[in-house]
Design a protein around this nucleic acid. Structure first.
Lengths: 402, 402
DNA sequence: TACACCTCTGAATCTTCCA
DNA sequence: CTGGAAGATTCAGAGGTGT
């Protein structure tokens, strides 16, 4: 699939692109953090003037506006534009797009949500970026995408056919035997405007050293959403070329422009061997890492704990104020001998030299808790175990009285 | 806790509020979708003019600006303002806040994310709203909140101390024996700016029939984040009064203003009995449990039970093969005295004449289990209770050895 | 006052090691 | 050799400290 990369200012280069030829424009324009002069007039008797605000971000808008106009020109009438906003300029970007494309062409504000390392700042941890999605006309191309139903949804019910009862109330259909009638497969829920895509990790193979590099998965999603195969994708600030890589992997034609020779070089190198990293998190989603049983956590309900995901011997640590270190805790699994559970907890904990370890015994078994005697380990019966025994004892008592 | 509700335009009412007296302003201003005239000049040779765009949203800005100024006046220097944006006006709101409070007082754009019923629109399903968070000064009050670590995090590792090697590279510390050194407890990750809070279910008890009603959980989070007890919360467009309810439940003073007599009436009614929504508070404290039922069932994990849905005294019955009848069981709720729980279980059970009743004690309290002596009732400690006590005892033991 | 440098931080990957 | 578990590595951050 053809991919053209140009060195230069997109304002100039774009004049060579014929109008109505591009199906998708994605751009992540550089933001100038330089000279944003503060407003001095805070006199609240004075009416608010837009031009006052404008002056502070004038440079950015003056830079972007003519380029957006040029992008609109090359965009096909069924085409779309996605503008990846700088945090400090998302409102300016929206004004500019409203002006160039028209307010009524605003389709969505996409929130790219991610997790990242934290720092001790006294504020909310920034964990999202905004992408504005405008179309050139109302007859835009849009491939509705679906995501799986949320776990809370009663999927069984969704898949049932609906009917009307004698009072014309909507009910779920049942056949002559009183069984539910199934509806065939549904595709799931339409894709929303908040996308949880892992931030590109420092160690990711996908990373090529370009500062604002975006995950390929994000670009893939955008490209699939509004283009078909062989359509033309344009990135006028292509940076390390992630957009072009994603486009090529999805069999779309693409044009990339950047005014940095380094960017062009990196992009051309990546295009020679386009690869997207296929990591567990990207592929399987967030659920893939959740290996600590709900079973185990349920038994610890009400405790102030830190669940541990990547350790087969420890289910959680207990939070305690003491400087005594952390207290590892493990819940005996069904069909797991108590001794084995104790050993697993001990093995996983030994490098940590905890002053205390806790094992929750859940199974009724021959093996007595006292037989497990590892120094520093306390064995506690779960409520369910105590209850089961209590019920048994009590009912025997009741019987013997008769 | 005092709560004042005023009927009228906040611009007027606010003049009566002394300056620097309010600690938090939350507002969800009405957006006028009326006469936004389209721009006609799309000549791309013409430079972009801010005033052109401004005209189209003039009315909204002219309405909001003087009111924001007034809110700034009444706000304490350590105070914060949260503006819940209409989707069509978030950029205008940001310009106005930049103008009134200053760009450098912009703290966060909070994304309230939710899932909702899908519609067949040819666009992305809207699943978020934006809340702009500005402070009055740099010395703002901020209660850092923490959330659990991501499932992908290696918690074992996070809990280790860090050090530098001879090349000043950050490494995990080891002691003289080559063992990992633990760091004590961590609280989790600082709260981010994307909040996943369920949209108010149309059938929720909480709902009072007001169109833009917000979940109490959302307001609780905001109030906790930037205020302490007895602080003053202001909602100048209070609608059905969710902000005031949340403030009162968290022991904050509050002022609500609305120019609709209906809104004022609904708010005053809700304030008279805020207890109906109290379960929300417990939810958040207990984390993941969507309702008290799940809280109870988690404590009974591993038991073969029949959950009871709509009984205030009984959480479940234990399945037992005996013809001895069913055994009702109840889990003590957070903040519920054990005696009260016992009485509730007894009252709910007495018509069934069970041979046995089981009460699971979950709270650390003065009241001894033995003091609850109802014939046929057995009191069992939950695992979490036993563990909490065991940890406390063991650590005291460790200390006394030193 | 300005700025260079140092420190703390957790997500998600890469890398190594072991059975 | 293979697969999984545990350890190592890095960050378009952000505050504090010292020059």
């Amino acid at each position: 699939m053809e991919a053209d990369v140009y060195l230069g200012d997109c304002l100039e280069i774009l004049t060579k692109v014929p109008e109505n030829s591009v199906d998708l424009v994605y751009l992540d324009p550089p933001f100038f953090t330089g000279n944003t002069q503060k407003l001095t007039t805070r006199d609240r008797t004075q009416r608010f003037q837009f031009s006052d605000v404008w002056r502070s971000t004038n440079e950015y808008a003056q830079f972007l506006h003519p380029r957006l106009c040029e992008m609109k020109r090359v965009l096909n009438s069924t085409g779309s534009i996605f503008l990846h906003c700088d945090r400090n300029a998302s409102h300016i970007a929206r004004f500019l797009l409203d002006n160039v494309f028209g307010e009524e062409m605003f389709s969505s504000e996409i929130i790219w949500q991610y997790r990242r390392w934290s720092s001790g700042e006294r504020r909310l941890l920034r964990a999202h970026q905004n992408i504005l999605f405008y179309t050139k006309s109302q007859e835009y191309k849009f491939n509705t995408m679906f995501v799986p139903y949320s776990p809370a949804t009663n999927v069984d019910q969704i898949l049932q056919k609906r009917a009307r009862d004698e009072y014309n109330k909507s009910i779920y259909a049942i056949d002559e035997n009183g069984e539910a009638v199934f509806n065939g497969n549904k595709k799931g829920v339409p894709l929303g405007d908040v996308w949880d895509i892992p931030y590109l990790n420092p160690k990711a193979k996908e990373r090529v050293g370009y500062p604002t590099q975006k995950p390929i998965l994000l670009l893939e999603k955008i490209i699939r959403l509004v283009t078909d195969e062989n359509d033309l994708v344009l990135d006028p600030f292509c940076g390390s070329g992630t957009t072009l890589i994603a486009a090529r992997l999805l069999n779309r034609r693409c044009i990339g422009i950047d005014n940095s020779p380094d960017a062009i070089r990196i992009t051309q190198e990546r295009l020679r061997s386009p690869s997207s990293s296929r990591s567990c998190l990207m592929e399987e989603g967030r659920g893939a890492y959740e290996n600590t049983d709900k079973y185990a956590l349920a038994h610890l309900s009400g405790l102030d704990i830190i669940p541990v995901q990547r350790n087969s011997g420890i289910d959680a640590f207990i939070k305690c104020d003491a400087a005594n270190g952390t207290v590892p805790i493990r819940v005996q699994k069904p069909n797991e001998p108590l001794g084995q559970a104790a050993l697993a907890l001990y093995t996983a904990s030994k490098t940590k030299h905890p002053s205390l370890m806790i094992l929750v015994s859940t199974q009724q078994e021959m093996e007595l808790a006292s037989t497990v005697s590892i120094p520093g380990m306390i064995v506690v019966d779960s409520a369910s175990k105590v209850i089961t025994r209590a019920v048994k004892d009590a009912l025997i008592g009741v019987r013997s009285k008769r």
